[in-house]
Simulated scan of single mutants.
Amino acid sequence: MSSYRISDTYDGIDQAMRLLRRSMKGMPERYRYMKHYDELRRAVAVLLILLEEATPWMEETEKAKRATAVAKKMFSAVR
């Protein structure tokens, strides 16, 4: 998974949360759902932070996979 996929995921989650916030503003008796909305917001915030922190690791992993594939090809050519 490369960083642009993580970035797209991040943007999609952000758009969904904005849409949810706009939907909540127009909802009658929204106070009944505010506790759940706040819990969801906190959980999504943690997810986004973890996703942001994982981005460099995912890039490093992709580089490592490519390097391993190249090394295997070179090793098989030497045999």
Rank of each mutant, 00 (worst) to 15 (best):
L19R: 06
Y10K: 00
R22G: 09
R30E: 06
A67L: 07
T55G: 02
L40Y: 00
T9L: 10
E39K: 02
R21P: 01
D14F: 07
K65T: 15
D14G: 12
W57C: 09
F75T: 14
D11N: 13
A69T: 15
S76E: 10
Y33V: 04
Y31T: 11
R30T: 05
R42E: 06
L48W: 00
P28D: 04
Y33S: 02
R79L: 11
H36D: 11
R21S: 10
R42I: 00
R22Q: 14
A43C: 06
E62D: 14
L50S: 10
D38P: 03
Y33K: 02
R42A: 09
A45Q: 13
D8V: 00
P56T: 02
G26A: 14
A16C: 07
K63I: 07
L40D: 01
D14I: 06
M58Y: 08
F75I: 12
L47N: 03
L40I: 01
D38F: 00
K25P: 03
R79P: 12
S7T: 10
G26V: 05
M74H: 15
F75G: 07
E29S: 14
S7H: 09
R41Y: 04
Q15S: 13
L48F: 00
V46T: 09
D38T: 03
R21A: 11
K35W: 03
T61W: 06
Q15F: 01
A77H: 08
D14P: 00
T55D: 04
A54N: 09
A64K: 09
E60T: 07
A71R: 15
I6S: 04
D11G: 07
A71L: 14
R32I: 08
E29A: 14
T55E: 06
E29C: 13
R18C: 05
M27K: 13
I49L: 13
V44K: 00
V78I: 14
K65H: 11
E39N: 04
D38V: 02
E52F: 01
M24A: 12
T9C: 10
Y33G: 01
A54D: 13
A16P: 04
D38K: 08
R79T: 15
T55C: 02
V70N: 09
K65V: 15
K65R: 15
Y4N: 08
P56E: 01
